[in-house]
C-alpha cells in the first residue's frame, strides 16, 4: 500500500471523526447511530496504522492488491448502512401513515346537509 493511500485514509478518518463528534455535540445523531460511524473511523485508522495486517488478510482471501481489499470492505460497510437505512425509512413512513390516518379519522367531519 503506498504512502498516499495511507495518508488519505488517516485524513478520511479524522474528518469523519470530527463530523461525528460535532453531530453528537449538537445532539443531531442518536447515540446508536454514532457507534457505527465511530467504528468506521476506527477501521480506517487501524488499516492506515497497521497496513501489514491488511496485506496479510487480503493475501489470505486472494485479493490482487491490499487497496482492492480496502475498497471492497468500505463498499460493503456502506451497503450495510444503506440497507439498514432503507428498512428504517420504510418503518418511519409506515408510522407517518398510521399517524396521519388516525389524525384524519379523529377529526372526521360528519355530513351536515
Amino acid at each position: 500500500m503506498n504512502r498516499g493511500l495511507i495518508i488519505t485514509l488517516i485524513l478520511a478518518c479524522i474528518v469523519t471523526a470530527i463530523f461525528v463528534i460535532r453531530k453528537i455535540k449538537k445532539s443531531q445523531f442518536k447515540i446508536g447511530d454514532t457507534l457505527y460511524w465511530l467504528f468506521f473511523c476506527l477501521f480506517l485508522l487501524v488499516m492506515s496504522i497497521f497496513p501489514t495486517a491488511i496485506y496479510w488478510v487480503s493475501n489470505i482471501i486472494g485479493f490482487e492488491s491490499p487497496s482492492n481489499f480496502i475498497f471492497v470492505t468500505i463498499i460493503f460497510l456502506l451497503l450495510v448502512k444503506i440497507f439498514l437505512l432503507d428498512a428504517r425509512v420504510a418503518k418511519v413512513e409506515d408510522k407517518l401513515i398510521k399517524l396521519v390516518q388516525k389524525y384524519a379519522i379523529d377529526n372526521e367531519s360528519k355530513e351536515t346537509k
Binding site: V100, Q101, Y103, A104, N107, S109, T112, K113
Partner: peptide
C-alpha cells in the same frame, strides 16, 4: 357539508 376526513 360532505362527510369527509382530511389528511394534513
Amino acid at each position: 357539508g360532505y362527510h369527509f376526513v382530511s389528511h394534513p
